[in-house]
Design a protein around this nucleic acid. Structure first.
Length: 574
DNA sequence: GCCGTTTTCGGCCCGACTGTTTTCAGTCG
């Protein structure tokens, strides 16, 4: 069983937890957390990077010691240092650390004074009323822990698209609160992450207390978690947590930067500031007592000698170094998308006709659109066989001749069967402008077999483009076990393309995979996978994901005009 | 444990809120 980056990161996170319980040097603990973050954010598997001659010590936050531990973990799947820590700390203590309101200090106190080393023992101590005897523990903490123990963690993440509706409504409401001059949704939402843990709202107002009052009085608030003079947290009826922060107008840029994060990016920037004798916090950039920047985000970046960095890049994945070197990408924007290469109609599981989708694409500002209904293999979708496909091609010809709407290309979303063959005959596929291949079955194959399956599909002479490559459904289905690097390499060798499916639950390729495609020179098709006319609006989510993957227009297949894309799609290679 | 335009030691991001206590430690982001 190969060791993945996530496994390495999980080990470092656990070591950080255990070190915390041991009251180890806080900076050492932070080093493990930071390393976990770095490893998790790697676009390529570390074992492949090592095989390619990469020195792990080049990674931020990885030095001699941690590089050694990574090698050990990749080689053996285990880490001696972790085992040693596990022997020193009772199993179960870690679970306590993850309860709300319990940090290392209180967990240590529970163990020392009540010999509590597990959730079960904590529950029993609460039942016996022992907790309130402890110094520092009162009825509120007791109640909170009782609730958490009875009702284990609900820390479910929400799709960004879902969170958007809540965020926009709340922002509209708060915009009318007293003294509000500026308002923004910050946090991972602004960075465009595909899932959101909570929403961070930032407001500039001259009357902060009134804004907090309006916020906690919002209709959908189920529970007020905290409310002070300049910040508050609530849980909405939907379960979504929203954190609000209010700052003076002159601090809005600094606060927006601060609350957009990511944490790793912020720390990196603050350290740069420190070296220049500057203190950067949410109120501004300070030299001694003098505020030298902070009204806008640009001014904050400028104070450390950097250009403004787009929020989607702020993950400390090299964006600060790129900015310093003047090599930030000019990220793809929605209005640079010229077409859409993955669209369905009512012939299979869509809701509209070819001409209706063509008109909707026109409305969405697209120059061309490819109709790519399902192939016959999927009974559930009433997939097309050769005869029904031929009929659809006539419909497309008629639509194009009518001159209304957007130019329509002839395509298919053909199933890649278990053995890597395609679900329609070569002769049928040869008549099309493009062949989009996709996996809709046998998700559980081993990494080796799944990779072989895809490599074989890509070898097919008519194969153009691989749709939603990992087949993940966020929160429902894990990504395929897959050697994505080999798949990307095969696409590069064969002149094929990869899709970034913009459906909010897919967003597949993910950001790290976009980087991989870019580095191998494989163009990415940002596709709506529209099933209804209004679905072209989803392209925006795909563009955001692509921006997180550092993609420029030059890396995006469907930023090309029709004239230039046509010859790229038509594959005559054998 | 990492790191260096204060470079091999001595730093390491920083502020708000809570609960409890009575001046602040702990937690959180």
């Amino acid at each position: 069983m190969p060791v993945h980056n996530n496994d390495v990161a999980a080990i470092f996170d656990e070591m950080a937890d255990l070190l915390e319980l041991q009251q180890a040097n806080p900076f050492r603990i932070r080093a493990y957390r930071r390393a976990a973050q770095t490893v998790r954010a790697q676009p390529r598997q570390l074992r492949d990077q090592i095989a390619a001659g990469r020195d792990l010590e080049e990674l931020p936050g990885i030095g001699e010691d941690l590089a050694g531990k990574i090698s050990e973990i990749l080689g053996t799947g285990k880490c001696q240092a972790l085992r040693k820590l596990q022997r020193q700390v009772p199993a179960g203590l870690e679970d306590l650390l993850h309860l709300p309101g319990l940090g290392p200090a209180r967990v240590r106190q529970l163990r020392r004074e009540l010999r509590i080393t597990s959730l079960a023992k904590l529950r029993s101590a609460i039942d016996k009323g022992k907790l309130r005897e402890l110094r520092g523990f009162g009825p509120k903490i007791e109640a909170r822990l009782a609730a958490a123990v009875a009702n284990p963690v609900t820390g479910k993440r929400m799709l960004r698209s879902t969170a958007r509706a809540y965020a926009e409504e709340l922002a509209g409401y708060l915009g009318k609160a007293p003294g509000v001059s500026e308002l923004a949704v910050a946090g991972s939402y602004r960075r465009g992450r595909d899932t959101i843990g909570d929403i961070d709202l930032l407001v500039a107002s001259s009357k902060p207390a009134a804004v907090v009052k309006a916020f906690t009085a919002y209709d959908e608030v189920r529970e007020v978690l905290a409310a002070g003079g300049t910040k508050a947290s609530v849980r909405l009826a939907s379960g979504l947590q929203v954190d609000l922060r209010i700052v003076p107008r002159a601090s809005f840029g600094a606060a927006l930067h601060y609350f957009t994060g990511s944490k790793a990016h912020n720390i990196h920037l603050r350290r740069m500031g420190q070296r220049k004798g500057l203190k950067i916090n949410e109120y501004g950039v300070f030299r001694g007592d003098e505020r030298v920047a902070g009204k806008t985000e640009e001014s904050v970046f400028r104070s450390v000698g950097l250009p403004w960095i787009p929020a989607e890049l702020r993950e400390d994945r090299g964006e600060i170094e790129a900015a310093r070197a003047g090599r930030l990408p000019r990220l793809i924007e929605r209005d640079e998308i010229r077409g859409d290469l993955h669209v369905h109609t009512a012939a299979t599981d869509g809701s509209a006709s070819v001409s209706e989708m063509s008109r909707a694409a026109h409305q969405a500002g697209l120059e061309y659109v490819a109709i790519t209904d399902h192939s016959r293999y999927l009974g559930a979708y009433r997939g097309l066989d050769a005869a029904r496909l031929a009929k659809q091609l006539d419909e497309i010809d008629a639509c194009n001749q009518s001159g209304a709407g957007t130019k329509v290309l002839k395509g298919i979303e053909v199933d890649i069967l278990e053995d890597g063959s395609l679900a329609l005959p070569d002769k049928t596929l040869a008549a099309l402008d493009l062949v989009v291949g996709a996996i809709h079955s046998h998700f559980g194959l081993s990494r080796r077999r799944q990779t072989t399956r895809l490599l074989r599909a890509i070898e097919h002479p008519h194969f153009t483009l691989l749709a939603h490559p990992s087949a993940r459904l966020i929160g429902e289905r894990d990504p395929l076990a897959l050697d994505l690097e080999r798949v990307v390499k095969a696409c590069a060798d064969r002149g094929c393309f990869l899709e970034l499916n913009a459906q909010p639950q897919r967003l597949d390729l993910d950001d790290a995979a976009c980087l991989l495609a870019r580095d191998q020179g494989v163009l990415v098709s940002i596709a709506s996978d529209a099933h209804r006319p209004e679905d072209f609006g989803l392209l925006e989510f795909g563009v955001t994901q692509a921006r997180r993957g550092w993609l420029e227009a030059a890396n995006v297949l469907n930023s090309l005009p029709l004239k230039r894309i046509r010859p790229l799609l038509r594959r005559t290679m054998t």
